[in-house]
Design a binder for these strands. Structure first.
Lengths: 116, 116
DNA sequence: ATGTTATTTTACCACTTAGTTATTTAACCT
DNA sequence: AGGTTAAATAACTAAGTGGTAAAATAACAT
């Protein structure tokens, strides 16, 4: 039950609807009904997604009359980013290995092809 | 059921045990039993976590006699990183706002404190 | 052939998640 | 007060997750 912050953040991001909501919020704060429009989903479902995002600290909700406008809070993404960045050298390394492999193929071709 | 790649990646990362396994694998390829050692968890449980990681393409498993050594495949993290990086300006922006706020506090203090 | 070690699979459990419909709350407008 | 709009909550369901213990597989070692 007491899931760590990073797990909570990643779990919140592990859903295309929620990621789309965050993407929408980069355009600015907006209401729940507005957020719900692009989705073939009932409002309570969106409401739940928003609660997950709020729980992860990825959005905050204001109050304007009967609207509860949401706005992006990207803070938690910083930790997520930092965690992933630790692995950058590993994915770049494997691209290097691909590069090496391609180079290897090319040099192996040389003796045969001869045609430069 | 047909969850997109990004969701699968984030879901795989949304568990401290799995993140710890990935961290261990940065030190090099190793066996399942070896991977299981730091955890108070049965081997089948670890086996399941490995299956999740494998399903997300974050590890690959080899064969050496009765061992099935795992090694890190960081590729999918690249996409995850790219997705998150889209939001960098938003978390940096909010830090800016914090900076602004702190500056504001400081300038508001001046007239009162007077003592520099 | 028999045993041992490494790992997976099966069957089960408690809990969570993502969605639904129906109801309720809150604030606005006459 | 009564009606409308925005959103949340409640109650439910189907499917997924994370764990277990026990059995099955696979490859090695005698």
């Amino acid at each position: 039950m007491p899931a760590d912050d990073l797990s909570t953040t990643f779990a919140a991001l592990a859903d295309p609807t929620r990621r789309a909501i965050l993407a929408r919020l980069t355009l600015g704060e907006t209401s729940v009904t507005e957020l719900a429009k692009p989705f073939e989903m009932t409002l309570p479902a969106i409401s739940k997604h928003l609660k997950v995002l709020e729980g992860a600290g990825l959005i905050r909700r204001g109050r304007k009359a009967q609207w509860r406008p949401c706005r992006l809070q990207a803070g938690p993404l910083k930790n997520a980013s930092n965690w992933i960045e630790q692995y950058r050298r590993f994915w770049e390394e494997s691209l290097d290995r691909l590069g090496d492999y391609l180079n290897e193929l090319r040099t192996k071709e040389k003796p045969d092809g001869e045609q430069e």
